[in-house]
């Protein structure tokens, strides 16, 4: 149950692009064509699913306060939390490099479709953001960390796929000249984010479901209660993502 909840929460409620704006740079730059968007999205899912569990292990056994106690009681007081940025980014950069080499060796066809995106990914904020959110949200087990990485990746994939499809279509519309390209993409993403916000009601609906959303602001609560009104938008977004 925990797994299912985290899975859907990371895809829809805490969607990387629409709720936390992670990976926006490549999201905007590589979303001109659906085919390239699919390639980058697949690479992001893959790299997130690998690096988040790895960084979870690093965090659990090296970085957090008292994590070094497995070395012996005299190490129990160390808190290496300040090193997490540099270790996380090093893990990500090496993993990306490693994945690139392995994929090139064993599956040249996959490398051709995915390869050019891999170096881009080392500096994609969605990847580092996934690890940092994993740390700040206290994901409890290795399995959950893998689940979190995988589902965040899928959420990002859905977002870039949707915007690429819309941008391919919008080429035929008469957008005001100054808004063409970047401007209209921003505004569409904003509207999609409003639509995705209504997924917030998914986890607060049941009676025995834990109240996860209590920390959110009153305004956001009101939004969540208004889910019924925005179902149209949801339907629209979900048909696009299909």
């Amino acid at each position: 149950m925990e797994h299912v909840e985290l899975f859907f929460k990371s895809i829809f409620v805490d969607n990387m692009v629409f709720a936390t704006f992670l990976g926006m740079c490549s999201y905007l730059a590589v979303s001109k064509k659906v085919s390239t968007a699919v390639g980058l999205g697949a690479a992001v899912i893959f790299v997130l699913a690998v690096t988040v569990p790895l960084n979870w292990l690093l965090d659990q056994y090296i970085l957090r306060e008292g994590a070094l106690s497995w070395l012996g009681p005299e190490y129990a007081d160390y808190d290496l939390g300040f090193l997490s940025f540099i270790l996380f980014i090093a893990t990500i950069a090496t993993m990306v490099q490693l994945v690139e080499i392995v994929v090139e060796k064993f599956s040249p066809s996959l490398y051709n479709s995915l390869g050019i995106f891999l170096p881009l990914i080392a500096v994609n904020c969605a990847i580092l953001g996934g690890s940092l959110f994993m740390q700040s949200r206290d994901i409890a087990t290795l399995g959950l960390a893998f689940n979190y990485g995988l589902s965040s990746g899928i959420g990002w994939f859905l977002a870039i796929l949707a915007i690429a499809a819309i941008r391919e279509k919008i080429r035929y519309s008469n957008v005001p000249a100054p808004l063409r390209g970047l401007g209209i993409t921003f505004i569409i993403t904003g509207l999609m984010a409003i639509g995705f916000m209504s997924f917030g009601g998914m986890l607060t609906g049941g009676d025995d479901a834990p109240k996860k959303e209590e920390t959110k602001t009153a305004v956001e609560q009101k939004e969540i209660n208004n889910t019924m009104e925005t179902t149209e938008e949801v339907a629209e977004v979900s048909t696009i993502t299909e």
Binding site: A19, F21, A177, L179, F186
Partner: peptide
């Protein structure tokens, strides 16, 4: 809420590009 940040940036881009026509993209 987060979506408005996107829309505000979109509007800034709109204003900037209407003032400087050289920046307009052709799709």
């Amino acid at each position: 809420l987060s979506p408005m940040a996107l829309i505000v940036v979109g509007i800034i881009i709109w204003v900037q590009r209407s003032r400087n026509k050289a920046l307009i993209e052709d799709h």
